Computed example of a mutant assay.
Amino acid sequence: MTTKVENVRKVFGDFEALKSVSVSIEEGEFIAILGPSGCGKTTLLRLIAGFEEPTAGSIYIDNNLVGNENHVKPPELRNIGMVFQSFALWPHMKIYDQVEFPIIHHSSTPDRIKSNRKKRMETVLKLVGLSDLSERRPNELSGGQKQRVALARAIAHEPSLLLMDEPLSSLDAELREEMRKEIQILHRKTKSTILYVTHDQGEALAMADRMVIMKDGAIEQIGTPEDIYLRPNTSFVASFVSKAILIPGSWEGSVFYPDAAPDNEWDGKCIASAFKENGTYPVRPDEWIMSKKFSGIQVVINNALYQGREIHYSATDQTGLTVNMITPISERYEIGDKVSIQKTGTKVVSVTSTTAR
C-alpha cells in the first residue's frame, strides 16, 4: 500500500502555499519533510490528514482517493494516526483510556484488534514503556512520557499512515535525542509508514529513509539522507541541510578552480549541474582543512566555538565571504590568526598551468 500526492496545489486567498507538489510514500517507509518556516510542509501534512482540502491535484492513501478539488474524505475516515506538536492529550482521561480510544472509535480499526482489545493495549503500552503508568493522567507525566502516550494512541489501531507534525519541538535537547531513538525503535518494531514534518536537519538526517526538502511551497529535492547531505542539487539544499558555503570560481568540465585560490584544483564529478551553471562549488564545514603553511584561500579567524571533541571556526576571506569550518580539537587557532584553508582532496597545480588556462 502506498500514499501518493499528485500535483497538489493549495491556495489561501492570494497566497499559493503549495505549488504542484508530488511525492510517493511506500509501505513501511519513513519520510521526513524538511524545510524552513513557511515552506508549506505543515500544509502538505494537513492536506494528507484531511484537515484541509486541495485547490488542485489528488491524494491517495492505500491506493484510495481521499482528496481532490471535488472530493475530500474527512480525517476520521482516513486510515491514519496523528502525533501533534502539542501532544493533544485529554487532561481528564487516564493513559489507558487515551490509548484505547482509537481502537474503540476509529472506523479503520481491524476486527482482529477490536476483538482482542486488551491484548492490543498490553502490546502497545509495553512497546512505548508505559505499562506501569497506564492509570495516570497527563498532569502526572513528564514531557517524554506524554510524547510516548501520543505515539501509543496514534499507532494503537494500526493505521496505514502515521503523521507526525514536529513532535519533538517542545522537548529539551537531551529529551529530543532520547525520543529520536524511541521513534526509530518504534518504526523498526511496528514497520509503520511514517510521514514526519520537521525543521530540524539533525532529526531528519538521523531518522528518515528518505527526505523531502521544501522551499516556498515547492519541493527542492527528494533523496536519502546521504544523497541530500553529500550531493545537494540546489544552492538552497546545500546551505540549509549541509550548511555548505558556496565558493565562487570557474569550471572546466568537472574540475573547479576557486577565484580566491586559482592554483587549487577541486574535483567536481559529483557536483550538481546547477552549481556549474552559476560558477560556484558547495563546501561543507567538515570538508575544510586549515594551515598557516600550504597554498589555499587566505582567511582571518573571527570566531571560535569550543565543542568538546571539535572546534567550530568562522573566518572571512578578502572579499568578505564568511566561511565556517569544523576541525579536530588538536588543531587550535586564535581569533585574528591568518590561515590558509583548502577543501579536502585539493590538488595544487603549477603557476604555469594556471596561467595557461
Score class of each variant (00 low, 15 high):
129 G>Q: 02
141 L>N: 04
151 L>I: 07
116 N>S: 10
126 K>V: 12
98 Q>K: 01
132 D>I: 07
142 S>G: 05
116 N>R: 12
140 E>F: 03
134 S>N: 10
89 L>K: 00
126 K>W: 10
93 M>I: 00
96 Y>F: 14
85 Q>A: 03
160 S>F: 07
136 R>E: 03
85 Q>V: 08
92 H>L: 13
83 V>N: 10
164 M>V: 13
137 R>L: 07
108 S>I: 00
135 E>G: 10
121 M>H: 12
111 D>F: 03
95 I>P: 00
106 H>S: 14
157 H>G: 06
76 E>N: 13
174 E>P: 00
133 L>M: 15
169 S>T: 05
93 M>P: 08
142 S>W: 09
95 I>A: 04
96 Y>K: 11
173 A>V: 15
95 I>W: 02
167 P>I: 14
73 K>G: 00
171 L>C: 06
99 V>T: 03
108 S>E: 13
171 L>I: 09
107 S>C: 10
167 P>K: 02
169 S>N: 03
169 S>F: 02
157 H>Y: 13
91 P>N: 04
134 S>A: 12
100 E>V: 09
139 N>A: 12
134 S>H: 09
138 P>C: 04
159 P>G: 07
69 E>D: 14
153 R>T: 10
110 P>Y: 13
150 A>H: 01
97 D>E: 15
104 I>F: 10
70 N>C: 08
137 R>C: 05
94 K>L: 08
168 L>V: 09
145 Q>I: 09
92 H>A: 09
131 S>Y: 01
139 N>E: 13
130 L>M: 10
86 S>W: 09
88 A>D: 04
81 G>H: 03
101 F>E: 05
166 E>F: 15
76 E>C: 04
120 R>I: 04
133 L>N: 04
131 S>P: 02
110 P>C: 11
140 E>Y: 03
141 L>K: 04
146 K>G: 02
146 K>Y: 07
88 A>R: 03
103 I>V: 13
152 A>N: 01
173 A>K: 15
171 L>Y: 03
